[in-house]
Design a binder for these strands. Structure first.
Lengths: 66, 66
DNA sequence: TTATTTTATACCCTTTATGGTATAAATAAT
DNA sequence: ATTATTTATACCATAAAGGGTATAAAATAA
């Protein structure tokens, strides 16, 4: 799974939220949250950022290794 | 402009490539490359990663500040 | 075990991102 | 200055992302 997907999934669980609760609080669609966490790669970046923003993060360039 | 957009634009220029050349080499559409560099936020993540991969990078979660 | 909650998959529909192309604007070169 | 190159904006068509919802599967609780 890609790092963003794993990050969201882990952080959401840490926060004790279900996908549904997370969807509601973030203003994202439930289906989107699910597909994102499952590593769907053709998601829209603005929505990915909307999800990351829940944890004070955003999508930035990072080295493919490390 | 968002960091990914700026990153691509800067790196592309450093590499001495026009948007057209970059589009060809990366296999991305010219229009997409342009919109990406102009900071369009509703772009598809897989294509963003395809662009970043040209420089050994990918989209990862990063703190919104710093 | 069974019952409950959470997550995954499938369907239809609407919106929109993307490619291609053509034109306009801006920048660089002569 | 003019010309050539690069970048930005606009149009149309197609493919697909996303929302909603319903069902199935999986995980957790009792």
């Amino acid at each position: 799974m890609n790092t963003i997907a794993a990050f969201i999934k882990n952080k959401r669980k840490e926060a004790g939220l279900t996908q549904e609760e997370f969807a509601i609080r973030s203003g994202l669609g439930l289906r989107f949250v699910r597909e994102l966490e499952q590593g769907k790669e053709t998601v829209r970046m603005d929505k990915v950022n909307q999800a990351l923003a829940m944890f004070g993060m955003q999508a930035v360039p990072g080295r493919m290794d490390e």
